[in-house]
Computed example of a mutant assay.
Amino acid sequence: MKRRAILAGITALLAPRSLIAQTPSRDGPRRLGVLMGNLADDPVGQSYTASLMQGLRALDWREGANLRIDWRWAGGDPALFDRYATELVELGSDVLLAQSSPSVVALRRKTSTIPIVFTMVTDPVGQGFVENLARPGGNITGFSDFNSLMAGKWLEMLTQVAPPVARVAVLYNPATAPYAGLMMRAVEDAAPSFAITAQSAPCRDAAEIQSVMAELAREGRGGLLVLTDIFTIVHRDTILASAAQHRLPTVYFARSFTTAGGLMSYGIDYAELFLRSADYIDRILKGASPRDLPVQQPTKFELVINLKTAKERGISLSTTLLATADEVIE
C-alpha cells in the first residue's frame, strides 16, 4: 500500500488537522515511550507494534532517524507496569503510548505533564483518565475499545449454538479490569432478551480460570464470555486449553483468540487501533495538546468463527450466525 493511502486510512475518522500546531523546534530525534501490557514474545503483541510502526512510517517518522522509541513489555505484571512507567518517564519521553488500563494507571502516577496516548482502554471517563470523550482535558487521550452494544451481540452469538447456552460466566480479573462493572451491567441488561442468566466469574490466576470452567461444564448448558483485559490476553493459552478440555461454547473479545483455536469472537480490530494511534502521536509531536484531541470510540467490528473448532467439540452453529461472520476459519 502506498504511503498516501495508508495515511488517508488512519486519519479519515480522526479530528481535523486544524488542531495541530507547528512542530516545536528541537534538535535531534524525538522520543516515544511505549508501555505494552503483553509479553514481549507474544506474536499478537508484536503484530500490534508492527501496525504502530506502519502508521508512524506513513507519517514520516523513522525509528533510529528522527524518532527514538523505548519499548517496555510488562506481561501483565503489576510490579513491571510500575517499574517500566518510572523508566519511561525518567528517560525524558516526548510522548507516551499506553496499551491497556494498567499501563495508563502506572504512567499517570508518574507524570501529569508528558502526553499519554492510550489504546485498548475501556471506559476512560469512568476510570478517571479523561474528563469527557470530546475534550479529555489533562495530558491523556486515546482510543477506547468498548461499546455497550457489543454485550448484546456476544450473548446473541451464544444463543445461536446447539445445544443452546442458558448460563454465561463472564471471565475477567478485577485487578486489571476495574471497568468490568460497566461491561457486566451491559451484559446483565442484555441477558433477559436472550433468556440467558449471566454471572460474573472473576479470576486472578490460571488455577481459578480452570476451576471456573470445570464448574461451568459440570452444571450443563453453560457458556463462557471472555472480556477484554490484559489478564485474559496474557493467559490466552490457558483459557483456550481449558475451554477445549471442557468443550465450552465461548465468545472472545478479539480475533486473536479465535485464530488460535477459540470458537468465536466479536470485537474491534486492535491492530487498527495501534495504526490509528500513530496519528495522535504525530500530532502531539508537532505541538498538539492531548486535551484537545477527542477520545476515539470503536465504530468497526468483526465477527470471526472457527468452524474447525466447532466440529471438533460437537458444537453446531446456526446458518444465520455463519452467514453474518466476517471470517469463517475452516
Rank of each mutant, 00 (worst) to 15 (best):
W154T: 14
Q46G: 06
A106V: 04
L107V: 02
F231S: 02
Y172H: 14
Y266P: 04
T238F: 04
I20P: 05
F231D: 01
R62H: 14
Y280N: 08
G181A: 06
S148Y: 12
N38D: 03
A166N: 12
V212A: 11
P249T: 09
L91H: 04
S200Q: 04
R135W: 08
R17V: 15
V161Q: 04
A169S: 04
I239H: 06
T176A: 07
E131T: 03
R247P: 01
N66M: 10
Q160A: 11
E87D: 11
P174W: 03
E188D: 12
V234I: 13
V304G: 01
D269K: 09
K110A: 05
G138I: 05
L133V: 05
R221K: 11
A271W: 03
R83D: 01
G28L: 06
A12Y: 13
R221S: 09
S242H: 05
L307A: 07
S265H: 02
H246L: 00
T299C: 14
L88V: 04
Q210T: 03
S25T: 14
L56A: 09
S25D: 10
A278C: 14
A106M: 06
I239N: 07
R283I: 04
A325V: 02
V251T: 06
D123E: 15
D205P: 00
A151F: 03
L155P: 04
E90L: 13
I233S: 06
P115V: 11
Q160H: 07
A241T: 08
G287Y: 11
G28E: 13
Q54N: 15
Y266K: 09
I116V: 09
L32V: 12
R291Q: 07
L96H: 07
E63G: 12
M120N: 14
Q297N: 14
L182S: 11
W71E: 09
R135Y: 01
R17N: 15
L227P: 09
M157I: 08
